[in-house]
């Protein structure tokens, strides 16, 4: 019973989000960020507008009639948030220092967060894999790394 209530509320939350998202797209975003054009059989904003309405109506329908879908464990979702932050930091680091310097650090941080403590596997992930990627991309394929 508790699970159903939880799943209903998760559907209501996502339904309300999509309802608002569709309305925001229709009234606020599309009028500003889609340029108008003369002529043609289909205006640039026609399809995005129709889609926004469909999203808003479907979202509202989901709020009224939620399904029995069980949402993923919120605790796991929060953990995922930390991994996403780490990846954002990784992208930022690569833009500043390059893949060669950031990849081993990123790999180490990821493996450590998962819980890997075995030195041999850590060395493989932190040194061997980035080195292998560097070799394949720059030496074999002749392409640049980020």
């Amino acid at each position: 019973m508790k699970g159903t209530a939880m799943s209903s509320s998760s559907d209501r939350i996502s339904g309300a989000f999509f309802c608002l998202f569709g309305l925001a797209m229709y009234f606020l975003v599309i009028p500003v960020y889609v340029e108008t054009a003369e002529g043609g059989s289909l205006a640039p904003n026609t399809l995005p507008n129709i889609i926004s309405i469909i999203i808003a109506v479907s979202g509202a329908f989901l709020v009224i009639k939620p399904t029995k879908h069980q949402m993923r464990d919120p605790r796991r979702m929060a953990i995922t948030g930390f991994y996403v932050l780490l990846l954002i930091a990784g992208i930022y680091g690569m833009s500043k220092f390059g893949f060669e310097f950031v990849a081993p650090v990123l790999a180490f941080a990821l493996m450590w967060m998962i819980g890997e403590r075995r030195p041999l596997w850590l060395i493989s992930g932190v040194v061997l894999m980035p080195a292998l990627i560097w070799f394949v991309v720059t030496q074999l394929l002749g392409r640049g790394l980020p």
Partner: peptide, 20 residues
């Protein structure tokens, strides 16, 4: 094979692949 090395390597490959 441990997931730690599989997922960290897969992520690095995705970064490099998309960047290329």
């Amino acid at each position: 094979a441990p997931e730690s090395i599989i997922f960290s390597s897969a992520l690095l490959l995705c970064f490099v692949g998309v960047s290329m």
